[in-house]
Design a protein around this nucleic acid. Structure first.
Length: 483
RNA sequence: GGCGACAUAGCCAAGUGGUAAGGCAGAGGACUGCAAAUCCUUUAUUCCCCGGUUCAAAUCCGGGUGUCGCCUCCA
C-alpha cells in the first residue's frame, strides 16, 4: 500500500501478525454528508473488507467529531443545542453510510465521550514541555517537536502561517495549534485544569486512536486535505506524548471534483449523498466511487453516474443469467467443475487479488469483475460442454467468485449469507408484482401467438415506461426492473 | 513564495522499462416478428509537447505547457 509518510508503496506488515488496527477520520456532524465525505467512507470500508477477505482480524475505528466550531455556529443559527444537533447528524450519517453498504466500524467514538482522555493527554504534553498555557488555552509548541512536517513533507520555515488568516499573537510560533480552547459564554464546555473549555480539533483523534488501538497501530486514513495540518498535528501530539511512532501506514484518498474543482463545503459546490441517492441507486454510487483508484481525483457529474449505472447493469445481467442457468439444477454439487472453466475462474480470482494487493486498485478489480461477467456469458452462450454436471459445478464456482468479489467491493446487495441479491424488494408486495407481471406476460404471449405485434409491442412499451423491461428469449420471456 | 499531484481513444479509466486492461458511447455480424439481453468482430502505430538515457519508455531523467490541490475550516 502507498504510505503517505514515506511517499512510496510498501509491503503491508501489521504490528501484530494476522491483526490490523485501523483508524479513519470520520465526519464533523453539522450537516448531511456530501459526496466528498462519502469517498473516504466507502474507500476505507473497502480496504477494511479486503483485509478481512485476506484473513486479517481487523479492528476498525472511525470517529465522529461532535464538538467543533462549525457545529457550534450551526447550532446558534438553528437555536439548537450543539451536542443535540451533532447527535442528530450522526444518526443521519448512518442512514447514508448504510445505504452505501458501508459496514459499521467496530468502534465509533465521539469526542464528547472522551474529554477525560483528552485532558489527560494535554496534561502529559504540558508536563513533557511540548505545550504551554495562555489565558485558559493550551497550545502545542511545534518548535519542540523536531520531526514536525515529516508527514506533509514541509519545513516550518517554508510555511507562511498567517498568509490567509490572522495569527493569534499569544502563540509562540504562528504554527502552534490549540490543544484546548477556553470556552466563550454559551459554548459547550468541560472543566479542566486550565478552566472551562473544550478540546481543539486535532487532539481528539490522537486520544481516541491511542485509547482504542494503542501506539504504533497499523493504518490511519482520511482525505488528502487532512495531511496538513490535521494528521501532521496528530503525529506531533501523539509521538511527543507517548515517545513512540503513532501509526505505521498513512493512507489518503483523493478528492471528488465538480468541473475539475474540489468539491467542498466552503466552495458550496457540494452534492449531498442524500440528494444523489434520490436520483441514483446507492449501489451505483458506490460502484462509481470505486471505479477510480482511491488516490486519484474523481470528477462528478450525472453523466458519469449514468455511465456507471449502465456498466453495472452489464454485470447484473450476467449474474441474472447465471442464477437463471443454475435455478433448479443441483447436479453439479457432487461433480467436479469443468477443468478449463475452473482454471479460468482461479485465474480471475488471482487477478482480482493481485489488483487489490497493489494499493487497493479497485478500478482494476472491477475490470476483473467485468472479465468474469464476459466469461460466464460466453460459457452460457456456448453449448460445447459435454458434461452438464461439470458445467453446473463450474457455474456454481463462478457464483461463489462473484459473491467473494462482492464481499470486498460491496457493490451489490447481499442476503444474510453474503449471497448477491438483485431486485430485492424486501416486501411481500414482491410476490404480487411477480404474479401480476406474469399475467401480463401471459396475455402478451397470446397476442404474439396470433402475430398481433402491435398489441405485444404496446404492452412491452408501456411496461418499459413503468420500469419493467421484457426480454423475449428462445426459452421464454424474462423480465427485470430497469437498473 | 514554499510543497505536491495529475495530463492515456468521443467520454470514464487501468497500466512505473518489454511493445496500450476494462467500462460507457459508436460501427458491422449472429440471434429475434421487431426489440432487449447475450455472443463474435471492430474503434489509440500510440499514451500533453521537446530533448535525453536504454537493445527497448506511456512508464526513467531534463526542460516546457496545461490543470488541480495543500500551506486556513475542509474527506
Amino acid at each position: 500500500m502507498y504510505n503517505t509518510l514515506t511517499r512510496q508503496k510498501e509491503e503491508f506488515k501489521p504490528r501484530e501478525p494476522g491483526k490490523v488496527a485501523m483508524y479513519v477520520c470520520g465526519p464533523t456532524t453539522y450537516n448531511f454528508i456530501h459526496l466528498g465525505n462519502a469517498r473516504p467512507i466507502v474507500v476505507f470500508d473497502t480496504v477494511r473488507r479486503y483485509l478481512k477477505y485476506k484473513g486479517f482480524d481487523v479492528r476498525y475505528v472511525q470517529n465522529f467529531t461532535d464538538i467543533d466550531d462549525k457545529i457550534i455556529n450551526r447550532a446558534r443559527e438553528e437555536q439548537d443545542d450543539p451536542l443535540k444537533l451533532a447527535a442528530r447528524y450522526v444518526d443521519e450519517y448512518y442512514k447514508d453510510a448504510d445505504a452505501l453498504h458501508v459496514l459499521r466500524a467496530d468502534i465509533h467514538p465521539k469526542v464528547s465521550g472522551h474529554i477525560t482522555e483528552i485532558i489527560e493527554m494535554v496534561k502529559t504534553l504540558i508536563e513533557k514541555g511540548y505545550a504551554y498555557v495562555v489565558d485558559g488555552n493550551v497550545y502545542y509548541d511545534v518548535r519542540k517537536f523536531a520531526a514536525y512536517g515529516k508527514l506533509s513533507g514541509r519545513a516550518l520555515e517554508d510555511m507562511q502561517a498567517g498568509a490567509r488568516v490572522d495569527v493569534d499573537e499569544r502563540k509562540r510560533d504562528p504554527m502552534d495549534f490549540a490543544l484546548w480552547k477556553s470556552a466563550k459564554p454559551g459554548e459547550p464546555a468541560w472543566d479542566s485544569p486550565w478552566g472551562m473549555g473544550r478540546p481543539g480539533w486535532h487532539i481528539e483523534c490522537s486520544a481516541m486512536a491511542l485509547k482504542y488501538l494503542g501506539v504504533g497501530f497499523d493504518i490511519h486514513g482520511g482525505g488528502f486535505d487532512l495531511v496538513f495540518p490535521h494528521h501532521e498535528n496528530e503525529i506531533a501530539q501523539s509521538e511527543a506524548a507517548t515517545g513512540h511512532p503513532f501509526a505505521r501506514y498513512w493512507m489518503h484518498n483523493g478528492f471528488i471534483t465538480v468541473n475539475q474543482e474540489k468539491m467542498s463545503k466552503s466552495l458550496g459546490n457540494f452534492f449531498l449523498v442524500r440528494e444523489i441517492l434520490s436520483r441514483f441507486p446507492p449501489e451505483v454510487v458506490r460502484f462509481y466511487l470505486l471505479g477510480t483508484h482511491y488516490r486519484s481525483p474523481l470528477d462528478f457529474d450525472d453523466e458519469k453516474l449514468s455511465a456507471a449505472a449502465r456498466g453495472m447493469e452489464r454485470i447484473k445481467n450476467s449474474i441474472r443469467l447465471l442464477e437463471e442457468a443454475l435455478a433448479g439444477r443441483d447436479e453439479g454439487a457432487a461433480s467436479r467443475p469443468d477443468p478449463a472453466l475452473a482454471a479460468r475462474l482461479d485465474e480471475l480470482r488471482g487477478e482480482f487479488e493481485k489488483a487489490m494487493d497493489d494499493d487497493f486498485n479497485t478500478a482494476l478489480a472491477i475490470g476483473v469483475m467485468f472479465d468474469l461477467a464476459r466469461e460466464i456469458n460466453g460459457c452460457l452462450a456456448r453449448q460445447d460442454f459435454p458434461n452438464k454436471a461439470e458445467k453446473t459445478a463450474a457455474l456454481q464456482k463462478a457464483r461463489d467468485l462473484f459473491r467473494d468479489f462482492n464481499s470486498v467491493l460491496g457493490v451489490f446487495k447481499t442476503g444474510a449469507d453474503g449471497d448477491i441479491q438483485l431486485d430485492e424488494e424486501g416486501e411481500e408486495d414482491q410476490s404480487l408484482v411477480e404474479e401480476l407481471i406474469g399475467l401480463i406476460i401471459e396475455v402478451r404471449q397470446e397476442a404474439r401467438k396470433k402475430k398481433d405485434w402491435s398489441t405485444a409491442d404496446h404492452i412491452r412499451d408501456r411496461l418499459k415506461e413503468m420500469g419493467i423491461v421484457l426480454e423475449d428469449t428462445p426459452s421464454g420471456v424474462r423480465w427485470k426492473k430497469q437498473g
